[in-house]
Amino acid sequence: MTTFSASDTPSMTGRTVVITGANSGIGRAAARTLAARDARVVLAVRDPEKGREAAALMTGHVEVRRLDLADLASVRTFAEGFTEPVDVLINNAGVMIPPLSRTADGFELQFGTNHLGHFALTNLLLPQIRERVVTVSSNGHKTGSIDFDDLNWQHKPYRAMTAYAQSKLANLLFTAELQRRLAEAGSPVIATAAHPGIAATNLLKDGGRVRALAQRAATLLAQSDDDGALPTLYAAVADIPGNSYAGPSGFLEGRGAPKLVGRSAKARNAELARRLWDVSAELTGVTFPQGSLQAP
């Protein structure tokens, strides 16, 4: 059984790590640990002022760059401005059970931010990525389904938790298909995923009866941001195979030291993963880069 802790994170000297949504929660906790291990850490955040406030509390080389995953133009601008190598990309940012909202491009906010924004960012940065792509999912993926007939909730009554579960299932399907494509291309880069268990982050703050109940449960059951970040760190630095999925080892994967965990049958469906990839590429206008990946 693994006993991985933050202190097991190896030296990251000479490596660059980009973390989305790293101004708070488990993203901030992971960034703090990686910076303390001498990584150059880039906080890719929607609000640079909040990013600078977070960076000021970290030791090491920490930079802040603006990235709004709910706006594909912002994603493209970020990627175009990032010309240097990236060793590890951590797709951490996310929104959880908001009222029905839409991205700048008209996508349902959770699907557009949690999945499509990271899909576009990853593919745009892939030519510069040298080691690993980590995408943060959730145990909530187990109740998720991909509704290809109405991905953006335009025709059916909106259910925020159902939409959230769809986006988190999409994260795992994306990881699986990304790993397949990387292996097929002969790339040394691997794709992994993680979930934090129950972590009391600001995803659950502000607004709504469902959210209030979830926040109350999280307060009683959750682990700290630092502990919630451990599966992300494990997925980012441990010697594990591509398409690995890390989560807490405790009861119902709610808390505890990280280990490799299972996923739903839908999350293991290779055909579903391919179909989602094709639809995501069509929606974002971003495709898997051909012939320009890091060489082995």
Score class of each variant (00 low, 15 high):
residue 1 M to G: 14
residue 4 F to G: 04
residue 9 T to N: 08
residue 20 T to A: 01
residue 24 S to L: 03
residue 24 S to N: 13
residue 31 A to S: 12
residue 39 A to L: 12
residue 49 E to G: 08
residue 50 K to Y: 09
residue 51 G to N: 07
residue 52 R to A: 14
residue 54 A to F: 09
residue 56 A to T: 01
residue 61 H to N: 14
residue 66 R to M: 11
residue 71 D to P: 11
residue 72 L to Y: 06
residue 75 V to P: 01
residue 75 V to T: 09
residue 77 T to M: 06
residue 79 A to R: 04
residue 80 E to P: 04
residue 80 E to L: 11
residue 81 G to L: 00
residue 82 F to C: 06
residue 86 V to M: 05
residue 87 D to N: 14
residue 89 L to A: 03
residue 94 G to V: 08
residue 98 P to N: 08
residue 102 R to C: 03
residue 105 D to A: 08
residue 106 G to C: 11
residue 110 Q to F: 09
residue 114 N to C: 02
residue 114 N to T: 08
residue 116 L to C: 09
residue 126 L to N: 03
residue 129 I to T: 03
residue 133 V to G: 04
residue 133 V to F: 03
residue 136 V to M: 10
residue 138 S to Y: 11
residue 138 S to D: 07
residue 141 H to T: 13
residue 142 K to M: 14
residue 145 S to N: 13
residue 147 D to Q: 12
residue 154 Q to R: 15
residue 156 K to S: 13
residue 156 K to H: 14
residue 157 P to C: 12
residue 167 S to N: 10
residue 167 S to R: 06
residue 168 K to T: 02
residue 172 L to G: 10
residue 181 R to Y: 00
residue 187 S to T: 05
residue 190 I to D: 04
residue 211 R to M: 13
residue 211 R to E: 10
residue 212 A to H: 10
residue 213 L to H: 10
residue 213 L to S: 11
residue 217 A to W: 06
residue 221 L to I: 14
residue 231 P to K: 12
residue 231 P to E: 09
residue 235 A to Q: 09
residue 252 L to K: 15
residue 255 R to H: 15
residue 256 G to S: 13
residue 269 N to C: 11
residue 271 E to H: 12
residue 274 R to I: 05
residue 290 Q to E: 09
residue 294 Q to S: 15
residue 296 P to G: 07
